[in-house]
Amino acid sequence: MKVLFTFNIKEEQLKRLETEFADVEFSFTKKIEEVPLDNYEVIVTYGEDISTAVLDRASSLKWIMVASAGVEKMPLDEIAEKGIIMSNVRGIHKTPMAESVLAHILSLGRALPTMREHQLKKEWNKKARQTELRGATAIILGPGAIGSEIGRLLQAFGVHTIGCNSSGDRVPNMDETIPFEKLKDVLPKGDIVISVLPSTPKTKGMLDGSYFEAMKDSALFMNFGRGDLVKESTLLHALKHDEIGHAVLDVFEKEPLPAESELWELGNVTISPHVSSHSGKYVERALEFFTVNLSKWREGDRELVNLIDLEQGY
């Protein structure tokens, strides 16, 4: 059995794989377009290098292991047509992303950016406005693995958490859960509105201007899911017309964010260059998913952890 990685792993990580799976041949490349693919049954990838041309060349491919959560840039229809199974590492981002979200909330609430500005000016100024998290209400769009972990951390600070998903079914670490149809009804309660939604046909452009009009004018809006949830023009209008208080954006409609974007210049925006999921433990955690699934695969078990519904896109 042959497995191709399209990214490198550490030497000790490879040795562990070779020890545990002595009958598997592991290969590595960063230029998949230059490698003969006929004999590879499994490809492990971050996803963006899988094209229809790659699929046409990979005649033996049965399983694509995506070492990321988002798969919206992959040719899902073609993968489904060829009967290829696909899994991802959904949940791998929950720790670094939840910590990133909390870091931004605490930083803004305790006025750390303002204090830094005063420091650069060598200015002893005690007038920075600071707030507390306790007693606040956070609305979390997409309370899955990441959203649930954000909710757990916020609840530890005394924050009331409201999860918003397609079903309205209760989920861990949410004091309440509502369906998307009721989102506008609860937005006026939210001191913090956090999106960790994936990109799907249903979520693209979902937040139009009416949602921002429904938010508190002091609300902190945070997008850590996908940038196509809201158009940049909609965000700019909400920020420039004080429909919300501040936005922390880790994802954008167009990435990298163009230098000419007005978002760079607004004082009530914090820009993070899509790095909230970064962690020195990323590959290590991805390999944990892979080894569990590779064991199942070798035993003929195709009910892999984090199987992707290719029609739904997640």
Results as ranks from 00 to 15, higher is better:
residue 174 M to K: 04
residue 102 L to F: 07
residue 113 P to V: 10
residue 1 M to G: 05
residue 81 E to W: 02
residue 14 L to A: 13
residue 235 L to F: 06
residue 82 K to S: 01
residue 95 T to F: 02
residue 126 K to A: 10
residue 70 G to M: 02
residue 104 H to C: 13
residue 41 E to Y: 00
residue 7 F to Y: 12
residue 75 P to G: 03
residue 128 A to T: 15
residue 158 G to E: 13
residue 300 G to L: 00
residue 24 V to I: 15
residue 21 F to G: 01
residue 222 M to T: 07
residue 89 V to S: 01
residue 171 V to Q: 06
residue 9 I to C: 04
residue 75 P to R: 09
residue 179 P to D: 01
residue 287 L to E: 06
residue 306 N to E: 07
residue 171 V to I: 10
residue 186 V to M: 07
residue 256 P to H: 14
residue 53 A to C: 11
residue 170 R to C: 10
residue 258 P to S: 10
residue 257 L to P: 05
residue 182 K to S: 02
residue 313 G to F: 04
residue 125 N to E: 11
residue 119 Q to C: 14
residue 41 E to Q: 06
residue 59 S to C: 12
residue 168 G to M: 06
residue 195 S to C: 12
residue 208 D to F: 02
residue 241 H to C: 08
residue 111 A to D: 13
residue 180 F to C: 02
residue 141 L to W: 05
residue 49 D to A: 15
residue 58 A to P: 12
residue 72 E to A: 00
residue 121 K to V: 05
residue 288 E to F: 04
residue 104 H to Y: 01
residue 237 H to D: 09
residue 83 G to D: 03
residue 306 N to W: 04
residue 23 D to R: 12
residue 72 E to K: 04
residue 145 A to K: 10
residue 191 D to Q: 07
residue 262 E to D: 13
residue 296 K to I: 05
residue 167 S to K: 10
residue 191 D to V: 02
residue 166 S to T: 04
residue 52 T to R: 06
residue 269 V to L: 00
residue 44 V to Q: 08
residue 81 E to C: 01
residue 181 E to K: 14
residue 64 I to K: 07
residue 78 E to H: 01
residue 72 E to C: 04
residue 220 L to Y: 05
residue 41 E to C: 07
residue 25 E to S: 13
residue 60 S to R: 05
residue 271 I to P: 12
residue 99 E to M: 01
residue 13 Q to C: 11
residue 177 T to V: 09
residue 38 D to I: 15
residue 156 A to C: 01
residue 222 M to S: 08
residue 48 E to I: 12
residue 16 R to N: 14
residue 279 S to Q: 08
residue 9 I to Q: 02
residue 201 P to I: 15
residue 167 S to L: 10
residue 279 S to E: 04
residue 113 P to Q: 12
residue 54 V to I: 15
residue 91 G to Q: 00
residue 154 L to K: 03
residue 283 V to E: 06
residue 154 L to T: 06
residue 173 N to H: 14
